[in-house]
Computed example of a mutant assay.
Amino acid sequence: MTLNLAVASFASEALEIPYQINNSDRIVIGTVSNVDMFRDHTIATITVSEWLYNPLPTETIKVRSERGTNIKTEVEVEFIQNESVLLMLNDVDLNKQLFRVGIGVPGKHPFSDRDAVIEELKAQGKWQGEGQAGNKTNETETIENTQTASKQEENVTENKTVDNGKTENTGTAGKQEGKSNDTKLKSTPFISSFWVLAAVLGAVMYVRKKK
């Protein structure tokens, strides 16, 4: 009852995102991949998809809830296998990647609250941008793929330039061959006329000598 009264005393503030952010060490989005329930507590394994605040370089974390097989309380968060969650976390043991939802039930949000939380983080100057920690690997792969694609495009452009050069050279060669043929055609009548005139002159001189 004492615990319930304490929660009730700050319930109005605890339901507000600004209050939750100010009372959290980290904020994460992920999927509940496993739930282990013990007598007096529950350990949920969360597969991280995105850190919204104060990220850690880890793909999975564990979140403890003071809710077990022998303890049922309305103030402690309950986890369901395979659900997507946004959690306001407090550190418990970083060496074990262990955390808890310090605000209790209000600190567990559906994924659909992501934009609202980001807006408040920006308003408080705590937003560090897209792709924090857990998404750095994906960003690196995207950058590398983009660079590879750019290099491939450059190679294609160079090949096209070479091909165009060959085509242009072929066209030039064709023009040169055409000019050569034209010259031969133009010079052929001149040569034929010359030999005909020479033959006529030779015949005339031969006739004169005989006379």
Rank of each mutant, 00 (worst) to 15 (best):
V75T: 15
N82C: 06
D36T: 10
T58W: 09
L56A: 05
L52I: 09
D36R: 08
I17F: 02
E74D: 11
L56I: 03
P55D: 10
R39M: 07
R64P: 00
P57N: 14
T47N: 14
D36G: 05
V28I: 13
E74Y: 07
V77L: 02
Q20Y: 03
T42D: 02
I43Y: 10
I43V: 10
K62W: 03
P55H: 09
E74R: 12
S65I: 00
E74I: 11
R64G: 00
I27L: 14
N70R: 13
G68V: 04
T60Y: 06
I71V: 14
I27K: 03
M37K: 14
V35P: 10
R64H: 05
V32D: 03
P57T: 05
N70Q: 14
N22P: 02
Y53R: 10
E13S: 15
V35D: 11
N34K: 15
D25G: 04
K62F: 07
R26A: 15
I21P: 02
R67Y: 06
E59L: 07
V48T: 01
A44N: 11
T69V: 07
S33I: 11
V75A: 11
I17M: 01
D36P: 06
I21D: 02
Y53L: 09
W51E: 01
L52V: 08
R26H: 12
Q81N: 12
V32H: 09
S65N: 00
R26I: 04
T42E: 04
R67I: 04
